[in-house]
């Protein structure tokens, strides 16, 4: 157990440093994030100022901040596609090589997925953040609502990142069933993409859906951390909301582990 942990830690560190080398790609990608955020902000501004925003649970400033946070933290909590490297291994048969290592496969892939996320997003997020505070006031990212809010945001962001990797790992386990093709993973992905609030902040969805929206697993990715940042969730709610996030992390890890072990036990390796 401790050997696995040690190996996974080194794998994690190697992978993060490796990914940090691609600074130019990070800058290039951050320009996309910036353009995208500004477009979203334009859309929010038009609808908030010209439409009827009386019943909205969010103000325009909060929505603008939500748009920036989505883009800044996109690779960490917004994006849960199966890790490209793992998918490649499944397709070309190199899964067999990973199975030869005296390591728990789930832990191994989990740490790699996490490392790729953090390593790849670091530069992109940093440059997007600089833009978010550097733009004219009407488009700017606002500071967190309070110190407690910010701390809770950080805590639930960490849980959210774990949830994101756990979900990506569940999809990776599904993907190991190669003969099914990309269909099942795509479907899981589109449902997740929709319910994590990236299309439209969950707090602005119709009121009768709010209960369901908060309890479903994908709110824990981006929406719950952002609500703490914006002050839409009071610090007194933190206990059960973060508990809920942790519950989903555990559920996804258990499901992912179970499915991966089952798939691996009768795996047919393709290719050579």
């Amino acid at each position: 157990m401790s050997r696995t942990l040690k190996a996974c830690r080194s794998l994690f560190i190697i992978r993060v440093t490796e990914n940090l080398q691609y600074r130019a790609a990070g800058i290039a990608n951050s320009s996309i994030s910036i353009i995208w955020s500004i477009l979203q902000i334009v859309i929010f501004t038009i609808f908030f100022t010209l439409g009827d925003a009386t019943g909205a649970a969010m103000t325009l400033t909060q929505a603008i901040t939500y748009a920036w946070l989505t883009q800044i933290l996109w690779s960490i909590v917004g994006y849960f596609t199966v890790d490209a490297e793992i998918r490649e291994k499944v397709i070309n048969g190199n899964v067999a090589l990973d199975l030869c290592r005296p390591l728990d496969l789930y832990a191994h892939w989990f740490s790699k997925t996490m490392a790729n996320k953090i390593g790849r997003s670091a530069w992109r997020s940093a440059f997007t953040l600089i833009a978010a505070v550097g733009v004219p006031a009407a488009l700017r990212l606002s500071p967190p609502v309070s110190i407690e809010g910010f701390l809770l945001f950080l805590i639930s962001l960490c849980t959210g990142a774990l949830l994101c990797v756990a979900f990506a790992m569940l999809m990776a386990a599904v993907r190991v069933g190669l003969t099914w093709g990309e269909g099942p993973t795509y479907m899981l992905e589109s449902v997740g993409m929709f319910l994590n609030g990236n299309y439209f902040p969950l707090a602005l969805w119709p009121d009768f859906m709010q209960g369901f929206l908060l309890f479903q697993p994908f709110a824990g990715l981006m929406d719950i951390p952002f609500r703490f940042y914006l002050g839409l969730l009071a610090p007194s709610d933190a206990f059960w909301v973060i508990g809920l996030q942790i519950f989903w992390v555990v559920a996804f890890i258990a499901a992912g582990r179970f499915l991966l072990n089952r798939k691996i036990s009768h795996l047919i390796v393709q290719g050579g």
Binding site: T179, W180, G181, E182, P184, Y186, F194
Partner: peptide, 20 residues
């Protein structure tokens, strides 16, 4: 692929998502 019909279903989920 066994799941080819699932792919059609998936794109349908995604396309319902677009106008939603």
């Amino acid at each position: 692929y066994k799941g080819w019909w699932l792919m059609i279903f998936q794109v349908l989920v995604a396309t319902v998502g677009d106008p939603l």
